[in-house]
């Protein structure tokens, strides 16, 4: 749909890991949202989003992640984020999202935190 964002996902030890690369703006974020919502609708309750390839996020990207987090909490699941680049982490901090999301420095720690 958009050339500026790639989304893929795989399973590691029963945890769905979503990899988002590129930029999450008001256009491209919808693709990432569709993937995450698809997983939740398919029954996934343990999701890690690896953001190591994400170079830019706007409030639209945050909206997608917040909505997934709220949805999973309702279903007794959890969404955790790994590998935020410094510029993306600053946007999280500006929004106060660093206090409502669990952030991990690497994907393995995020996945293992579900064990």
């Amino acid at each position: 749909m958009s050339g500026s964002l790639d989304v893929s996902n795989r399973q590691v030890n029963g945890v769905d890991v979503v990899f988002i690369r590129g930029r999450m703006d008001a256009h491209s974020s919808t693709e990432a949202g569709a993937t995450i919502n698809g997983l939740i609708e398919g029954g996934s309750r343990r999701i890690v989003v690896n953001l190591s390839g994400l170079e830019y996020i706007s409030s639209s990207g945050l909206r997608i992640l917040l909505s997934a987090l709220k949805q999973l909490k309702k279903e007794d699941g959890a969404l955790k984020l790994a590998c935020l680049q410094p510029s993306v982490r600053e946007v999280f901090a500006m929004a106060g999202f660093d206090r409502i999301f669990l952030l991990y420095d690497d994907e393995e720690s995020a996945v293992n935190s579900f064990a």
Partner: peptide
């Protein structure tokens, strides 16, 4: 931006940035 998850609203965040 200090609201907890249950009370967190996304509206207005872009202009706040």
């Amino acid at each position: 931006i200090d609201a907890d998850l249950d009370h967190r609203k996304i509206g207005g965040l872009g202009i706040f940035f």
